[in-house]
Design a protein around this nucleic acid. Structure first.
Lengths: 231, 231, 231, 231
DNA sequence: GATGAATGAGATTTCATTCAT
DNA sequence: TATGAATGAAATCTCATTCAT
């Protein structure tokens, strides 16, 4: 039988997720200004507000006005910390890229058996965690919403890091029949990201564990050659 | 071995695509005005221009000014045919929904063998064709770019039509182990759409046939339970 | 005695000034848009309003809002014709540069006698005319108010044209004792411009003819070596 | 021949300049607060920074932020010593006005011979010195950049002091043919100021001694009736 | 039918000045 | 005495939509 949707150990994955989180305060001021405690707090409030507002209807639609309202501060203050909306996104992108890169190291070998399924399951759980916070940034990358090439580069780099690991693990799994590696990896990431977005946006309503289990099964078979019927 | 990437009959699929296309002039003026030949031509120019401009950086970013320039006409004329930018999208959405609905009927039973692969391959080829024209509309739905709920409803309906067929075919294929049907179907559509967008946006560069072959193999195994190794 | 402040023939200088005026409608739309009669009128209204508002407290202090109010139009309309305030200045600068260049050809040989005085008087009268219209632009150049290097170049070119003629005429007059030509010409232009500005700004209140006569006498002696006492 | 550009005694003029300088610390705090040593130092740093920053692109363009950065202090501190940006200018204007007034007493009788030329030369040298420090303030007056009428009054007063001396010396020299005294004096000051600004701004590049010599010769002939050819 | 012109609401951004520590 | 943080009024600019010919 296949992957008896073993209730994944959520606590465990949370613990690991903590380990992944790389200095969340890394959102350093774009300008070189040294910040004191109060300034750092305000900046963090703005970063959080940015994520929150971007999450609602996307980066493009978000207004600086919405962000400062959410951060309970003023326009003037916003421009004290960021040169513009894009600059705020950039700061978030840096953090997000770090987290994604760290994430890429949490995927071990994916065998075709239950052990491989578990491994994949764990990885997808971690991705979901990251998406819960940085979804808006990942979405902005995925939807090509960014003009700024520097931010784009960050995204490409982070996605490549994850994609490389996926590709390597697929090869190890002996998935030699895959016709185009580029497309395969892209397809995997696309599926992952969009489904996560569907959940975040409320379009897909499903129990989180069930969701991850389903994605894991699909990926295990579709990308890692697991048989639909395990014995 | 499975699915010897049989060179798909492109001509054939084009022919079928023609059949699919349901009255391309169906984008009737929202205002309900009766149009003479010249008027119909102008309107078609605007619709085409809309698709072209939306394709570049998405519906939201597109300016009415860009559209009228691409259509070689004026602002005044635009508002003669459409009540606003959204109205143009709606007209395109109607056509796109029809095409997607028609598309959903082109997927036969997907067995786990080569025949099933071919069937799936044919369907994905058709989807690709549709995306080449209506990509911007599908993208707008997928990225939640639309405010107007009527347009959204059109999208949901069309996606449901396709999703239903997919779900039915999966069930027929005996993929009963799939944990959540909602998620499964969503994952399939997401993969399909995003990879198509990746190609359209130039981010994924790959030979079209190879691309479709790859997607087919992944889907065949991931969603329809085909074994990685057929004998 | 020198220069019996012969009442200068104002009419005549006006006539010549007309000749000088090089296509006042030359303020073509910065963008390539072709303009109809109404559009040209609006644009001209904005150009005139620009001069008027710049005249009040200078280019820098002027607000786009003041300009559109003076032109009895809206913000939107302003940006239809000019990309920003600087662009409006540029359009004016082009016209002004043409007029200054034309002006430079209206100075004949300046002998040390009454004839030379008359020649100089005529030239200064013409300059005054030009300043009455384009003073704000000349002032912006003189006060280094412009960031844009293209506008600056226009100014330098026009000033050089005038300066060159002055320098040539001085040399012809045998003013070999002048220690630095650069400084001499600069001093002449500076005097001319600032006194004109003084009048335009209301700081210097003096009868126009008397003013020009005075400037002529100073310049005739200071720059062209005329004796204070002619016999 | 006239005025063999006798190498002016720079040292001497510097010495005299020192004499002119009237209590440089006179820029007392507008608020009237008594200041200790540290406070006086901070204030002086701000005043110097003001001059430095104003020199770059003018009073209007200068930002308080630039000033505090140049003074290596903070916004808060700035407003501890000055009520606003204009107040800083006012403090500088007071000092500048004193220096200009003192300057006006350094011009003796200007005869038409070499002795007169030397006298004028000395005066212009002194003016140049003053401009080197207070140029930005003088420029602000000259370019009408100040809103505040009190500052303006200071400027008018200082300029009048200098102008009066000039006028008196011209009359003494028997320059009775000058048509309008107002205009004559204005022209002289304008020439002086703008050429100095040209040098300060880097637009005019010329050896300082040569520059002063040239100005002296022009003024000697143009305003004081010296003959171009002395015997 | 078609078009260029005009509009104004709303978004972004700057910066002198005040506040709190 | 000093400072970093915060503010908000005012300026710039964009763009969907309406108007007049």
């Amino acid at each position: 039988m296949v992957n008896p949707p073993r209730k994944s150990d959520l606590t465990q994955s949370i613990v690991k997720a903590e380990v992944i989180k790389v200095d969340p305060a890394s959102g350093a001021p774009s300008s070189g200004r040294a910040l004191r405690a109060q300034g750092r707090r305000t900046m963090q409030r703005l970063l959080d507000a940015g994520l929150k507002v971007f999450a609602k209807r996307g980066y493009h639609v978000a207004r600086v006005d919405d962000i400062v309202k959410a951060a309970k501060t003023s326009h003037g203050t916003f421009y004290l910390y960021f040169t513009n909306k894009e600059d705020l996104l950039r700061a978030l992108a840096v953090d997000c890229a770090e987290e994604l890169t760290a994430l890429s190291s949490t995927l071990g070998a994916v065998s075709r058996d239950q052990k491989g399924w578990d491994e994949l399951r764990y990885f997808l759980g971690n991705f979901t965690k990251t998406y819960q916070r940085y979804g808006p940034v990942i979405r902005a990358w995925m939807e090509n919403q960014v003009q700024d090439s520097e931010i784009d580069r960050l995204g490409v780099k982070a996605f490549t890091a994850v994609g490389d690991v996926l590709g390597r693990r697929m090869k190890e799994a002996g998935v030699d029949y895959t016709v185009s590696e580029t497309v395969t990896v892209a397809a995997f990431m696309a599926m992952l990201e969009r489904v996560s977005y569907g959940v975040a946006s409320g379009r897909i309503i499903e129990d989180e564990d069930l969701l991850i289990d389903t994605m894991t099964s699909i990926a295990h078979r579709g990308f890692f050659g697991a048989s639909a019927i395990l014995d």
